[in-house]
């Protein structure tokens, strides 16, 4: 489900089925690094949108957790998001980013941190983009299945 009114209504009606929050972690900057940061952001956006399409019934794709790119990423604030969502019934948290700074944080302790190196998707046709994203998302599937199965046991 996406950040749309229609999906929110559906979520409220089917809450018990939607237990996974997907949150893209997206740095923002201006100046000389901007192009790189935008490239990564675009990649993460397509990636998470594709993921949402495959698992729309169990996954809620939140708006990106957006922050200014510095050495210190705001993990406390992300934890607030996670705590709020946990209180509201989400059980699994998937943080998706290509910002390597998150790998040195505790984000992996209160959710699953999935770090993936981004590449440019600028010149891809729709079909090619879908194929590429499918391949990329495949890397995440085992992690997600593990996450879901650990609960059923």
């Amino acid at each position: 489900m996406k950040w749309k009114e229609k999906d929110a209504a559906m979520y409220l009606a089917e809450k018990e089925y939607v237990d996974t929050a997907v949150i893209p972690l997206m740095p923002v900057t201006a100046g000389k690094d901007m192009q790189d940061v935008v490239k990564s952001g675009e990649f993460i956006r397509y990636f998470t949108e594709y993921l949402e399409r495959q698992y729309a019934g169990r996954v809620y794709l939140f708006p990106a957790f957006t922050y200014i790119k510095t050495k210190q990423v705001p993990e406390e604030q992300l934890k607030h998001w996670q705590e709020l969502l946990r209180e509201e019934g989400f059980n699994h948290f998937l943080f998706i980013t290509s910002d390597a700074s998150w790998r040195r944080t505790s984000a992996d302790s209160f959710g699953e941190l999935f770090w993936i190196p981004a590449f440019s998707v600028e010149n891809m046709e729709v079909q090619e983009l879908a194929k590429t994203m499918e391949q990329q998302v495949q890397q995440l599937v085992p992690l997600m299945m593990d996450m879901w199965q650990s609960e059923e046991k």
Binding site: M10, Y17, V18, Q54, Y55, A56, G57, R58
Partner: peptide, 8 residues
């Protein structure tokens, strides 16, 4: 599209 909640 799954007719339950729309997964693939």
């Amino acid at each position: 599209t799954c007719t339950h909640l729309g997964c693939t």
